[in-house]
């Protein structure tokens, strides 16, 4: 339910790009070479689900499942825009069918189930498809005896699916409980931003929880909190570092080190 606080900056075209972290204009190429990380301040730009696959899994190993699963509009939801039109438009703009993908892969040669969210699709909101894919990923991990790795990037629930969206929180957690009871390993990676119903469900249930530096992670949005209680919030509020300090994360890992960290953890957990 959280809207992106920072303006959308998915590293657009042009020679320079403005960093949302430090506000500096930095060479686009430098950012790209550093895995979409600001060379000045280490700000981790948002990246898409496909890039997650490319960065965190072995080349050519990802075998996507249920790629053709797409959202319905069960409530025929029309607000300022019609949900059905929004879905179409997100599909066209992102080239994705939904805000999450999943499949099997290898991570430094270790087989795993990998699911990744993409914030560009409807702000990474969780509707029926995202919930179903995460659930199927957990069930696949259980059936195949593989570790499960997810990367979250979400503004929260998909309001246009109302209660169905809410139910995805329960469904994904139920599937993860089964995986956990069977001794299956689950590593959750929280990226910028991980908020609302996704944080309050599957993303928080990892046996190990990793976050990227500076990632915004929380339940309620900063603006909602400020408006509700008229409280001044610390500058590092809801950052990965804030959560680490408060005991809700296990490790903060730089983007370039995630794959190696996953491989090491999987070595222990499976």
């Amino acid at each position: 339910m959280l809207r992106p606080r920072r303006k959308k900056k998915d590293v657009p075209g042009g020679l320079f790009v403005k960093c949302d972290g430090c506000g500096e204009m930095v060479y686009r190429r430098n950012v790209q070479e550093r895995l979409q990380i600001c060379p000045e301040c280490n700000y981790h730009f948002r990246i898409g689900a496909r890039e997650r696959v490319r960065l965190h899994t072995d080349e050519g190993s990802f075998d996507e499942r249920d790629a053709d699963m797409a959202a319905c509009d069960p409530l025929h939801f029309v607000a300022a825009k019609a949900y059905a039109d929004q879905i179409k438009s997100y599909m066209q703009r992102t080239g994705l069918n939904e805000a999450a993908i999943y499949g099997t892969c290898r991570i430094e040669d270790r087989p795993a189930v990998f699911a990744a969210m993409d914030f560009r699709f409807a702000g990474g909101s969780m509707g029926s498809v995202v919930g179903e894919k995460i659930t199927r990923a957990a069930e696949l991990a259980l059936a195949e005896g593989l570790p499960l790795v997810t990367t979250a990037a979400s503004g929260g629930a998909r309001m246009q699916e109302s209660a169905y969206s809410l139910m995805q929180m329960a469904k994904t957690c139920a599937a993860l409980k089964r995986l956990s009871d069977a001794g299956g390993a689950y590593i959750s990676i929280m990226t910028h931003p991980t908020t609302g119903g996704v944080t309050a469900s599957w993303a928080s249930m990892g046996d190990v929880i990793i976050a990227e530096p500076g990632a915004l992670i929380g339940f309620a949005g900063r603006r909602v909190i400020e408006q509700t209680i008229n409280q001044e919030l610390p500058a590092d509020f809801q950052t990965a570092e804030f959560l680490l300090e408060h005991g809700f994360l296990d490790i903060i890992v730089e983007r370039g080190q995630i794959k190696q960290t996953l491989a090491r953890l999987i070595g222990y957990l499976s």
Binding site: M69, A70, A71, C72, S128, G131, E132, Q168, A174
Partner: peptide, 9 residues
């Protein structure tokens, strides 16, 4: 809970 959700192929 497993059955809750609406999606299409």
């Amino acid at each position: 809970y497993r059955e809750l959700g609406v999606y299409r192929t």
